[in-house]
Design a protein around this nucleic acid. Structure first.
Lengths: 218, 218
DNA sequence: GGCTTTGCCGATCGTTCGTTCGTTCTGGAA
DNA sequence: TTCCAGAACGAACGAACGATCGGCAAAGCC
């Protein structure tokens, strides 16, 4: 629960007064949306804050009014999305109860669903986070490490309880997480494959790797 | 031949005291080695060719003597490594013969082994290739696509032959490849886990996902 | 000894980068 | 009406960027 805690704040302060589609007042969101697109296209170093400002139809200085710089803007983007992930994790894990298999299934489902719902931020976190300045990066890495711990515990508990059967729980965990994370790289939102079906398939693949339901005989 | 080649002995600072023997002639390799390191650390856009030249103990212009620019240098780096991968693929597939399971196992083994042997270039190809200019990038993407085809064919043939048993061969292929590729992200060359053992484990995981050896009964 | 090629250097070009600064506009509060 | 904080602007900063150029010492060939 340590690194799991985020800043569930969301929209803070700044009253909800905004008039009808006024050019003023929605600057923060406009910048964030533009940043998401441009960072996703060109990566952290490949993106100039001028590109972001241009995409948001604002001046370069407006960006500095809301964010202290490029790094903080990028950090805010992925932290927002990570908060979302952890919220869903906690909710689904609570519903799953104590059964290790149910918990592992919930983790797979939440992760795959998140990689689809927040595809762009997922790719940024998975591929560009390492270029962020350490003071921004390290706390995020810690939070991600907590997720590994959740997967690992579900697997280890499942093995202890006899419901999973694999000689190398660490490798299994890495394989399961890798396959879930990779969804962000190929999933096509305009395709036929729905999220629910996709999650079902990945739970089945994960269970297969973990030897779930195998006969203990040998 | 491989990563052993490098910046030899010449620790000479500036051009003045150049010893008679070594510093000449190994420029190309020195630049390539430096490029590998710096690109791996900072990514494509995050790396300046000045950094590379500095790391190689050469001038900026020397880099342009051997390569036409940043893009070509990066391209040469990953194409070199990709050639290596394909060579190993062809060799092991030839040894595997026609059996789909043997072919799939060979592909998993070759891929995992490659991700370990050429860890740095693997990460560059997997994460930074997309930032390379299209005229350099597209041919490489095509070659990588061919690998997907090899995995897919082995899986499909295995299903047709009754040796594999999965309702979603595409998802299985993506999962298998994702888990193999991810090895480059966590493998620690200084750790205890040897490559052979690692490959064995991943073949077993892949077979588990593909339902290899399951009883058809239900 | 002359001539050409190879391997590399320092200086510099024009551009773009992240960031800062001073200024202006607007909508309410006093 | 005055005042002010919030929101946004254009111009400019020094540094770093990728790329180009002319030059030059050593080595190889005749």
């Amino acid at each position: 629960m340590d690194a799991m805690s985020g800043k569930a704040a969301g929209k803070s302060g700044k009253a909800a007064d905004n008039g009808p589609s006024s050019p003023r007042g929605n600057g923060r969101d406009a910048i964030m949306d533009a940043a998401r697109d441009v960072f996703a296209e060109r990566g952290y170093f490949g993106t100039s804050i001028r590109d972001i400002a241009k995409r948001a139809d604002m001046s370069l200085s407006a960006l500095y009014y809301y964010y202290s710089g490029k790094a903080e803007l990028f950090h805010a983007l992925i932290e927002d999305s990570l908060d979302d992930y952890f919220r869903h994790c906690e909710k689904e894990l609570a519903q799953a109860g104590d059964d290790p298999a149910a918990r592992l299934a919930a983790l797979v489902r939440v992760t795959v669903d998140y990689r689809v719902r927040r595809r762009v931020e997922s790719l940024l976190t998975l591929q560009e986070l390492r270029y962020l300045e350490p003071e921004y990066r390290n706390p995020i890495i810690e939070r991600r490490h907590a997720v590994s711990g959740l997967f690992q515990k579900a697997i280890d508990d499942g093995i202890a309880g006899g419901v999973f059967r694999t000689p190398h729980p660490d490798d299994a965990r890495r394989a399961v997480m890798a396959m879930c994370n990779a969804v962000a790289q190929w999933y096509d939102p305009s395709g036929d494959l729905g999220t629910t079906e996709l999650c079902d398939r990945y739970v089945r693949l994960a269970f297969a790797m973990l030897g779930h339901g195998e006969t203990p005989a040998r």
